[in-house]
């Protein structure tokens, strides 16, 4: 009788794949890393000392002086940050939605969509803070500068996301409106918009979450919101007050994140779903463009 395989002697291992090519990629990376560490003068002793310095500050931050910052009106400042993020998101949403239709390759001709795509890319390349640096001399210090900066920056990202979801649609309904004699605009209104609106509105909410953080930061350069409060407390080295501002900001950010994530889940998946893991992974894939 014939045995299928002889297990008394171990089978030969397949040869390991060659790794020489990897080194050609790895070496430039290593050079860049060493160059950076030397250039910034990051030595092990400095690295190990830093947590000690940070720890001494953290010790002074306890207990947080909530009463003091409340009297200074920090709660109002935090809400100002939220207002800035909300209005900024609305500006971004309203401006980006029509532009996204003109940028999607399945519904817009080349001559209009390529300049609009370039516009989205250019806007996305410039951070809100830089936009605020440019806008503050024009608008003056205050919440309006931050709102405009966030609104403009949001046009770039929201436009790109909306455009990508328009490109993913089922084109049947557009054909149907055409067959009924509808013009381009009615094709968009009745064929495309109902399909993409759930996804796009959840993107708006997601952008709002990001914008809350961004507007908190914008205050640091005087564009309204809670950032200015943190900066002034830290420059006076009033650490209990600074930690109180920090904790209040974190509480607001986390609350908004949680509510918004729940609403987004409801919009996309409906009321009775529980599959959260795959949903966040999908969101990551959407944002980074990395598929795993």
């Amino acid at each position: 009788m014939e045995t299928l395989s002889d297990t008394s002697t171990p089978a030969k291992r397949p040869p390991a794949p060659k790794t020489t090519q990897r080194w050609f990629i790895a070496i430039p990376f290593l050079v860049a890393i060493v160059w950076s560490l030397i250039g910034l003068d990051i030595t092990l002793s400095r690295l190990l000392n830093a947590p000690g310095d940070a720890w001494s500050i953290i010790r002074q931050m306890v207990p947080p002086a909530f009463g003091e910052v409340y009297e200074r009106g920090a709660v109002g400042k935090i809400f100002e940050s939220v207002y800035i993020a909300w209005i900024g998101t609305i500006i971004g949403a309203f401006a980006s939605l029509p532009l996204a239709f003109l940028a999607a390759h399945n519904v817009a001709p080349l001559w209009i969509r390529s300049p609009i795509r370039q516009l989205f890319n250019a806007i996305r390349a410039v951070p809100e803070l830089i936009l605020a640096v440019i806008l503050i001399p024009v608008t003056g210090l205050g919440a309006w500068a931050g709102t405009l900066a966030i609104g403009i920056h949001s046009i770039g990202t929201l436009g790109k996301w909306a455009c990508e979801s328009i490109e993913d649609i089922d084109e049947g309904p557009i054909e149907a409106t055409k067959a009924c004699g509808g013009k381009w605009v009615s094709g968009m209104r009745w064929g495309v918009l109902p399909q993409v609106m759930p996804v796009i509105s959840s993107y708006w909410l997601f952008r709002f979450e990001i914008n809350v953080r961004a507007s908190a930061v914008l205050g640091m350069i005087g564009a309204g919101g809670v950032g200015s409060e943190l900066v002034s407390q830290l420059s006076f080295r009033n650490f209990p007050a600074a930690s109180a501002v920090l904790i209040m900001t974190m509480a607001v950010v986390l609350t908004i994140d949680t509510i918004s994530a729940a609403v987004r889940r409801r919009i996309i998946k409906g009321a009775e779903t529980t599959d959260e893991d795959s949903r966040t992974l999908e969101a990551i894939t959407d944002l980074t463009g990395i598929r795993s």
Partner: peptide
């Protein structure tokens, strides 16, 4: 939950 520039300002201090 803490924005990146808040970290920067904290560590600068």
């Amino acid at each position: 939950a803490v924005p990146d520039l808040f970290w920067a300002k904290l560590l600068v201090t």
